[in-house]
Amino acid sequence: MIPGSFDYVRPSSLDEAVSALRDAGDEGKVIAGGQSLLPLLRLRLAFPEVLIDVASVPELHGVRDEGSSLLVGAMTTHYDVLRDPLIREHAPLVAAATSTVADPAVRHRGTFGGSLAHADPAGDLPAVVLAMDGVFVTSSREIPAAEFFADYLTSTLEPDEVLVGVRLPKAFAGWGFHYEKFHRTAQAWAIVGVACLVDRSGGEVAGARIGLTNMGSTPVRASAVEAAVRGGAADREAFRAAAASAAEGTSPPSDLHGSSDYRRHLATVLTARALSAAAGV
């Protein structure tokens, strides 16, 4: 199919991008890699009047070491994320989840910031950033991950706000990590995904972070499981027991690929598996 008409601007600085967005009012839309947006435009499910292409905004590019955290530029492609030595060293969970995003050609174009700003709870990255307590750095403020995802395909970004990057703490660098993605075919979205970080100290779990993909209209933390494993034994039995509460407080969707009940069930099984894989047991 063919997109409807729109105007196109390609600002070369963050200020220009913000003012272009402001000029467009409610009818502007930022395009980064366009890998989520273009299919929506082609199916005529979205009709922006102006596309603001942020590809040439230098502030949005690159991964920077900020000491205790990394700032991942919003325009960093999935491909670049996967090859970035800082991410590999300090945020390997991000790389693990990114490697499951779509396919190589889409990863060449699709961006870290774009897929997060798209706020699709079935996307693989939101749960990861939530689990890591990432911070969304925008043209005007900083938004903690827990406050960024508002609803299905809706973030708390204002219409004239540009996502510059995401700050990821290095605190999890030494933790075990795993992204468990459950989908029907290689191309299908996750029915459920589990992003998991485990801090092991000997045979015990010192801490855990768990983000769930596609278990609600936003990514959700499995806080009850995190609490249940903390201080407990790092073994499969304990993980299975703790993971029984993985779906607590979630309201997963029912769709073509899985019912709400089934997703709840999967969350418990996959969370146990993700914990075991992250803990290396």
Partner: peptide
């Protein structure tokens, strides 16, 4: 519709000519 764009594979149906 896969082509190489600056040497890397992309799906040319999901790239605007202006991009």
């Amino acid at each position: 519709c896969t082509v190489l764009l600056d040497g890397m594979s992309v799906k040319s149906c999901s790239v605007l000519a202006v991009q």
